[in-house]
Structures are given as C-alpha cells and as structure tokens.
C-alpha cells in the first residue's frame, strides 16, 4: 500500500461523499481548517520553549555522547540510537515529543531509515501517562496496574514494531 495514494484517496472519497450527501463541502472545509489552525497556533508558544531546550541539549553534544556509548547495544538489535530521546519523552509529553522529533529530523533526513523510524514511532504511539491522568481524573475509580501495565506494554510494542515495520516495509 502506498501512503501518498492512501492520503489522496481519503481526501477525494470524503469530498465525493460530502457532495453526494449535499453537504456544502467548501464552507465545512474552511470551518474545520480554521479550527485546526487555531490548535496549531495554540501550541506555538510551548514549541518555542521546548525547541529551545531540545536545541540546547543537541548542541551540548550529550545525545551523541550517550548514543556513542550505547551504539554497540543498539546496533545489535537494529535500533537507531538517535531515536532514544523520542522513546524516553513520548509517553510523558506530546509537545515535547514533537520537539524531539523535529530535532531528530533536522539531523537525519526524514526519508532516511532513522528519520522514518522516528516518524513511525511518533505516529503509532500516544502520550500514554498524560492520557491515563486525564481519564482517571474524570472518574472516582482509582488507576491501577491493570490499566498501566497494558498501556505501557502497548507503547513498547509500538516502538518495537516501528523499527520492525520500517525495515520490512519501507
């Protein structure tokens, strides 16, 4: 399956469906786009702060130092060491992960193996701990390991699968 074709087909199909159902697709599109522009604008301030911190970390050379030390371990399992910061922050902060992915892709081309693996990791996992906190703050039930363990296991599976499927499919 080709990803670009899939994206285009979804766009065309939804527009066609809208026209068949006599929806004013132009004004609906404008409304939805405006809402998302607002969301993108809302996260801009936190991205400034986060990208400054992540940029400092990159410039200090600490990421390379750790990656060098661990590269023998990572290369044995085919995991790109550059993706390590993303794995560490992904389940805690969504905008933080966005900033780290941006940093990884500025060092590795997005179409390189490392760039692709980082992209798939970001796309196939969620801000697990934040999500758990939001959901359990809404109800009286206490959060237990019965929720946390499967959620974390799903994250780890996502990271492993990202490496696996990029190497197999792309």
């Amino acid at each position: 399956m080709n990803g670009e074709l899939f994206a285009v087909l979804i766009i065309v199909f939804i527009c066609l469906y809208g026209l068949i159902k006599k929806t004013d697709i132009f004004s609906a599109f404008n409304e939805g786009a405006k809402d998302n522009l607002k969301t993108a604008f809302d996260i801009f301030p936190s991205l400034i702060f986060l990208l400054t911190a992540v940029g400092m970390l990159r410039a200090s050379g600490a990421i390379e130092a750790v990656a060098d030390k661990l590269s023998f371990l990572f290369s044995a399992i085919g995991f790109p060491a550059d993706c390590l910061p993303l794995v560490l922050i992904r389940s805690v902060s969504g905008s933080g992960a966005l900033a780290v992915l941006d940093d990884i892709l500025s060092k590795n081309h997005p179409d390189s193996i490392t760039g692709r693996i980082a992209s798939v990791m970001m796309g196939s996992t969620e801000t697990t701990f934040y999500t758990i906190a939001v959901y359990f703050s809404a109800i009286r039930l206490k959060c237990t390991g019965r929720t946390v363990i499967p959620a974390v296991a799903a994250d780890i599976t996502g990271f492993v699968c990202s490496v696996l499927f990029v190497r197999l499919l792309l």
Binding site: G3, H109, D111, G115, G123
Partner: peptide, 23 residues
C-alpha cells in the same frame, strides 16, 4: 514535520504506522 524537513514523501510512513498501531 516530515514536510518541513524536506521529505519527498511525507505520507509514505502511513502503512508502517497503521500496522504498528494495530499490533
């Protein structure tokens, strides 16, 4: 993000993302 860093195929990751999410 991929587009902003000059990816020639920003959406090419979709199959891998979908499979990985599903698993």
């Amino acid at each position: 993000i991929r587009l902003s860093h000059g990816s020639a195929h920003p959406y090419e990751i979709i199959p891998a993302v979908l499979l990985s999410s599903l698993v």
